[in-house]
Write a protein that binds this DNA or RNA. Structure first.
Length: 274
DNA sequence: ATGGTAGCACGGCTA
């Protein structure tokens, strides 16, 4: 089973790029981020006429996530638990029944966190975007802990807005003070990983030069000045089935592309010995 | 140091 994540940066502007990729890559399940659309105005036919089921969690103008699946989507849940006052649409979960049992799919769009606002003691300023990012990550940590406690196959994937290591940026020094790479952000990501998740891409590919985002400005893609911030995380029961993981970087060279490209993982439909 | 590009939606925010 092929499962993918793609920050499409606006569903209405990406009808061509998204459908070209769907038709070529044929994922069984995909999560989308930055649909920048309400549920009511989402062009569902783009997805449904290709045989996918679709669940959206949108908002007007910004953010917004979705899950599409060739298999039925069950037990859909919208919103990351832990803060009833959080109105930003950044989290959606659903269950798909695979050949080897249920798989919980959690699609996320983690807050960017810039600009970084710190007080004199270096504490993120309450109410600021960086504090919101770190608070959201604390809630994510709690949700991941619950998923792991269930001891079932789950995939947590999306745009994490986290550069895990220096090798995940072409120019790491230019990101040192950025919310995507600051020590507090990376530490929060490590805390989540160390609960017991496997990062699918790094389980398959070592070394620098592999990116999932290139800025639209300054010919970043042509210069391969990118960062790797879209990730696929697996619980042990899912990691046991991991066959492959890769980044569809060529999508960035297409017509009217998103600034992100898809990342996908192939999971065996049986408990794998690989 | 600033501005460079893009989406949504048509003004200004977000990235």
């Amino acid at each position: 089973m092929k499962i993918a994540t793609f920050n499409i940066n606006g569903i209405k502007a990406r009808a061509g790029a998204l459908t070209r990729w769907l038709d070529e890559a044929q994922p069984d399940v995909a999560v989308l981020q930055e649909i920048k659309s309400t549920d009511e105005t989402f062009p569902r036919e783009l997805i449904e006429e290709r045989g996918y089921n679709l669940e959206t969690h949108g908002q007007k103008g910004f953010n917004g996530v979705a899950i599409l699946s060739k298999l039925p989507l069950e037990d859909v849940s919208r919103g990351l638990p832990g803060d009833n006052d959080d109105t930003q649409a950044r989290w959606i979960e659903a269950t798909v029944s695979t050949g080897s049992g249920a798989l919980r799919v959690c699609g996320l769009y983690l807050p960017n966190g810039n600009p970084v606002e710190l007080d004199a003691a270096g504490t993120p300023v309450a109410g600021g975007k960086y504090a919101y990012k770190l608070g959201w990550m604390a809630r994510l940590e709690a949700r991941v802990a619950a998923l792991l406690a269930a001891e079932e196959a789950a995939v947590i994937l999306g745009d994490f807005n986290i550069i895990p290591q220096a090798e995940d940026a072409a120019k790491p020094d230019s990101w040192r003070e950025d919310a995507l790479f600051r020590p507090e952000s990376r530490a929060a990501f490590r805390r989540i990983m160390h609960l017991g998740l496997t990062e699918a891409f790094r389980a398959r590919t070592r070394g620098p030069g592999h990116y999932s985002f290139w800025d639209y400005q300054a010919r970043a893609f042509e210069n391969n000045n990118g960062i790797r911030i879209d990730h696929i995380l697996l619980t042990p029961q899912a990691a046991d089935r991991l066959l492959d993981c890769a980044i569809d970087a060529e999508v960035r060279a297409g017509e009217k592309p998103s600034d992100h490209v898809p990342v996908w993982a192939e999971l065996a439909d049986y408990p794998s010995a690989a």
